[in-house]
Structures are given as C-alpha cells and as structure tokens.
C-alpha cells in the first residue's frame, strides 16, 4: 500500500515541479525579450483552464494515445532515483529508462496521427525522426558512463559521485556532459531542435488537433518530461543530491541552460537537426568513449 502511495506522491511531485519550471522558464524568456513575462504560476493556471474546457475528440485511438503518453513518462520517472530514493528499485534501471522514454512519445504520436490533420501527420513524422536523432549520441554517452562505473544502475552511478564537487562526472567527463546537454535540448523539444512543434510551419505540429483536456494532458506530459530528463542528467553528471532541495536546485540549473539556449536560437530544419545531432554531439560522445576506454 505504501508503495502505491509513494508512486502517486512521486507522480504529483514530478508534475508540480515540471509545471513550476515551465512557468519560471517563460518568465526568463520574457525577461530576455525585455518584457514582463507571465506570473510564475502561469502554467498552473493554463492547465487548470484547459481542463475546464470542452474538448473535441476524433476517435478512441486519440484518447488512448494521450493517456498512454503521460503514463509512459510517469513510468520512466518511477525508475529515476530522486534525491537518493527511487519508487521502484531495480538493479539496472538505466536500460529500462532508455526503453521507457520512447513509450511517451509513441503514445503522443499514435494519438495525433489518429486525428487526421495533415499538419499533425507531418509533426509526428518529424518528432519520430528527431527522436532518432537525439537518442544515438545520448546512448553513447550513457554507454561510456556504464563502462566506467561497471554498472548500469543509476543509483550506483549517482552514489559513485558523492563527496566533493571534484568527482562529479561533469568534471571528470566534460565532453560527455556537453554531448548529453545538446541531446537533452533535443529530447525536450526546445528551440534549436523543436521542428516538431514549429508553429510557423505546421501550426504547432502534433498539438494541432488537441483541444481542452487533451492539450492539458499534453502540457502535463511536457512538464513530466522536463522533470524526468533533467533528473537523469543530474543523476548521471551531477551526483544525485541527498535531500530534495539540492536535487531540485540542480535540476533547475540544467533547465536554465536549456531555456537560455531556447530564447536566442531559431530552429533547425528537421534534416539539418538530425544531421547536426549525428555529427557534433555524436563525435564528442565518441571522443569521450575513446578517452574512457583507454
């Protein structure tokens, strides 16, 4: 029973922190654009409003897809150690996380393709190619860390970096961190790699047909994805902190970097994005791998 309660607690905690980050992110982007941004709790208001609206569904597949995408991401979140304790302890959860992360986006893709809007179909094909793009460098970086720590369990990797800041993986493997940072930017669909939610070209891609509650669900999925991805990076490179506050603080630093990059860069075309992802971060990750192996 306690177990289930912990799972729910983690779920709500992830959504709360994710929305909180989104609100602050919009405020920072606004300040970069020399304007007063929305209040920091704006994301909560948006989600609240969206859930109060009537929504239009096309068919059953769309409902299933949306719920599946949120469930996929929350499932990924369960395996990520947050400040020392994880919801479900397994020995090699890094591999499970890598697999489960794809579920979230597949769910979204299925829901949106069912909506039949050509813009959405293009958006979905872009999202999946983008996924192809960022997973290759990200997994090479992970491979490197697994080899060096001899284990694929995130907790052990995180604990191996305890102690002073000097033995954080970020300091020991700076190249790996840069490659992971670029891949993170693409994973979250932030600006240089947000060809799938490109409002100027395909009218906000997959989210074209989502209204009311579905858009609310998409918002939550995005919030949880922010939380999960930053949590993975914190555990891998910045040594998962012992108590919650330092953990959230570190997550916020990572999110800050992505928001800053988002505010000042336009987006790549989809083939340019994948070409960029497979050349720049990939070569850094391979270099890192070579350094680790020898």
């Amino acid at each position: 029973m306690i177990e289930i309660l912990r799972v729910f607690l983690f779920g709500f905690f992830a959504i709360f922190i994710g929305l909180f980050f989104m609100g602050i992110g919009r405020k920072i982007i606004a300040r970069i654009q020399l304007r007063l941004g929305p209040p920091f709790y704006q994301a909560f208001l948006d989600v609240g409003k969206l859930f109060s609206r009537k929504s239009i569904t096309h068919n059953f597949v769309m409902d299933l897809g949306m719920v599946m995408s949120l469930a996929g991401l929350v499932a990924t979140m369960l395996f990520v150690p947050i400040a020392g304790h994880t919801a479900i302890k397994t020995s090699s959860n890094l591999i499970v996380i890598m697999y489960l992360m794809a579920i979230g986006y597949l769910g979204m893709a299925m829901a949106v393709a069912a909506s039949g809007n050509p813009n959405a179909t293009i958006g979905v094909s872009r999202a999946l190619t983008m996924m192809l793009g960022y997973e290759v460098p990200f997994f090479t970086v992970m491979l490197g860390l697994i080899i060096i720590n001899g284990t694929s369990s995130l907790e052990l990797i995180a604990n191996s970096q305890a102690g002073s800041i000097l033995n954080w993986n970020m300091i020991k493997f700076p190249l790996g961190f840069i490659a992971a940072e670029i891949a993170l930017q693409a994973m979250m669909g932030e600006k240089p790699f947000d060809a799938m939610i490109a409002p100027a070209e395909i009218a906000s891609g997959p989210m074209v047909e989502l209204s009311g509650k579905y858009l609310g669900l998409a918002f939550l999925t995005h919030a949880v994805s922010i939380f999960v991805e930053t949590a993975i990076i914190v555990n891998l490179f910045m040594g998962g902190a012992s108590n919650i506050f330092t953990f959230v603080l570190k997550q916020f630093e990572i999110y800050l970097i992505t928001v800053i990059i988002e505010a000042v860069f336009p987006r790549f075309k989809i083939e340019q994005a994948v070409k960029f992802l497979w050349t720049v971060p990939m070569s850094i990750a391979l270099l890192q791998l070579v350094l680790i192996v020898f």
Binding site: P39, I56, P199
Partner: peptide, 11 residues
C-alpha cells in the same frame, strides 16, 4: 495576463 497567440482554433 496569460494571453498568447495560439496556432490553431482548437487551442
């Protein structure tokens, strides 16, 4: 005031 342009009538 939380007002922003949306890309599609649905949203």
């Amino acid at each position: 005031f939380g007002i922003g342009p949306m890309a599609t009538p649905r949203q």
